[in-house]
Nucleic acid binder design. Structure first.
Lengths: 342, 342
DNA sequence: GGATTTTCCCAAAGCGTTTTGGCATCTAAC
DNA sequence: GTTAGATGCCAAAACGCTTTGGGAAAATCC
């Protein structure tokens, strides 16, 4: 059932039917109702490809999903996607997800846009001087970056959380509690959010005359296993840290296990602060010893980005092009004063 | 840059350029090379919407993502998606993800197909007598179901794991170890995989003259928190179980925490077997006490389904339409003989 | 009552591909 | 030396929608 058949059925022109469906004013209310009824009855759905070809709009947001044999799926990606979905469903948008080898992201983005399959692009997993930004700026397709790059002008639309500030706050708290040796279990070192978190940590420690030792830093994918390994390694140091920062509750999961295994008590022998993306599957307040966290909802970020993208495409409202969200520092039982004598 | 412009640039007809690009034989090798060179130089990309309209093929696989305010993002969804991606990227396919309220799935599926935006559909989160199956069978669009429905003929294409068998094996092992009181922390009760797992458990216990008591069963979303709560509840029973089955390592995470908190020793005071979807973020062998599991890779399932779908669309190879994967029962330290005197 | 606007609808021209049906030219065959 | 078949190319017709540029009838105005 296509528009032609439908219009013949109704004894109307394609034009009128199309207008009736798309809410144009120049069509009689009664006629419109007839059309709407016929649609309901026949189950007619406009062919999106044709619609897209005619309007140039696709009703979809593109994203590139990094994938490769070695690359593990990211819990955080799913949570973010759920946020995007919440908002997209309200406007009948969908996503076009293009898997890509991480090395090939620029080309994949370009291809995705050129294909005409998407109205806007969402960019994430930002790196230093990320080439995707310049590429996207040279096109006219709207885009929003989740996170920020580094070392290039920040004159592009983004939504980021204040990673530097979050870890500055967290590290400062630890320093104030008397901790002299702090460790950091961070995300992959090539991603900018990791770099910023390191920076915030270093800055806060420096203000208290402390340093973040190289052997007290771990960079890895954010899985339970990596958290465990890193913590295990830290605890075997000659001068082990008395406090540790984790870039994710998933990392914290492993870290806490290593701490327990070593027979240490979380919150007294050793303190821990994790960044909490508010993953429903893993709540910091439900750990055996509830975790002190820097909190910022990943799902909310997804919702917001979808909203901005859609507003941009549909010209609905003018939203700020650059947003930097502060994080909350929520103190729970996993932090305490540094053990004396250390 | 479109086909028309490109062909004018080359002094050829659109037909010839199109044929050259799509590998048709009736074009001179030299001409083809000229076209290919021009494409490289101009960065021409065919407009997918137009291509779609002309061919009827879209190069994409559709999936409906359940989303709603109360619904939490599912770790398992992300992992599965990664699997799909692995395979899709090889054939330059992408996904069209349509978020939908769970109540509205049938309509969303139908709309997604009717939109002409996808060549095939992937169905998951199967329920009893799931109406989506009949709906899809009435259309000509290829589809594969991940899981199986219940109470209707199984004459549709699916890939499922042997949930009944997995939990039968696991429960039997527990019974053989002398456990008389077994509990089950399962997924949502309206999903068929949960039902099958319950069935397998009940059957194995029955063969040893045991029953699965109602108060020893929990159905919920598979998050850490629900695992914790369920286990906590079980341990407060007058006659607490000495062994527990978990439908996911995520649930097991919470359950183990509750066990520790109660001062019980996993593997001696209480035994636990979890189903392991091989989530990279949470490996059973890395738990403090490594978990005995029934294992089946979710990512592998995603890869396989993508492969089947693509093969179907492109008519590449004939793959079996119905697959039931056995799971591995891997014994680790979290299972042991039932404590005596109970 | 004629002029002007408003209301409602239509035919036809795109949008950028693929595909159909032909038409030359060149080669091989009798 | 004509004929039959390849070979290599093209013009034009889809595909299913939106949008442009009217145009007839009805309503409104002086």
């Amino acid at each position: 059932m296509n528009l032609k058949q439908l219009s013949q059925l109704l004894g109307l022109s394609q034009t009128t039917v199309s207008r009736a469906l798309n809410g144009y004013p120049e069509v009689n209310a009664e006629t419109r109702q007839r059309v709407l009824d016929a649609v309901r009855e026949t189950g007619y759905r406009p062919n999106r490809a044709a619609q897209r070809l005619a309007t140039g709009r696709a009703g979809s947001i593109g994203l590139v999903m990094p994938t490769a044999d070695g690359i593990e799926s990211d819990v955080h990606f799913g949570e973010f996607l759920a946020g995007l979905g919440d908002e997209a469903v309200k406007h009948d948008f969908h996503f076009v997800i293009n898997p890509s080898h991480p090395e090939d992201e620029v080309a994949t983005c370009r291809r995705l846009v050129a294909s005409g399959n998407v109205d806007a692009l969402f960019l994430a997993y930002m790196r230093e001087q990320d080439p995707r930004i310049a590429m996207m700026k040279s096109l006219k397709t709207p885009f929003v970056v989740h996170g920020r790059s580094m070392g290039i002008a920040t004159d592009y639309p983004y939504l980021d959380i204040d990673n530097t500030g979050a870890f500055y706050d967290a590290a400062r708290l630890l320093a104030q509690l008397g901790h002299r040796h702090v460790a950091l279990i961070n995300g992959p070192d090539y991603l900018t959010f990791s770099k910023r978190r390191t920076k915030g940590t270093v800055r806060a420690l420096a203000e208290h005359g402390l340093v973040l030792r190289d052997e007290c830093v771990s960079n890895s994918q954010m899985t339970d296993e990596h958290g465990f390994r890193a913590m295990e390694r830290f605890l075997q140091l000659e001068m082990p840290p008395t406090a540790v920062l984790c870039s994710s509750t998933v990392l914290a999961l492993g870290a806490v296990r290593a701490i327990n295994q070593a027979g240490l008590k979380l919150g007294s022998d050793i303190s821990l602060i994790a960044h909490d993306d508010v993953l429903p599957m893993l709540k910091p307040e439900n750990f055996m010893v509830p975790l002190t966290t820097t909190r910022s909802s990943l799902r909310a970020a997804g919702q917001r980005i979808a909203r901005r993208l859609i507003a941009d495409i549909l010209q609905l409202e003018t939203l700020p092009q650059q947003e930097l969200w502060k994080t909350d520092l929520i103190v729970r039982a996993s932090t305490g004063p540094a053990p004396s004598g250390k």
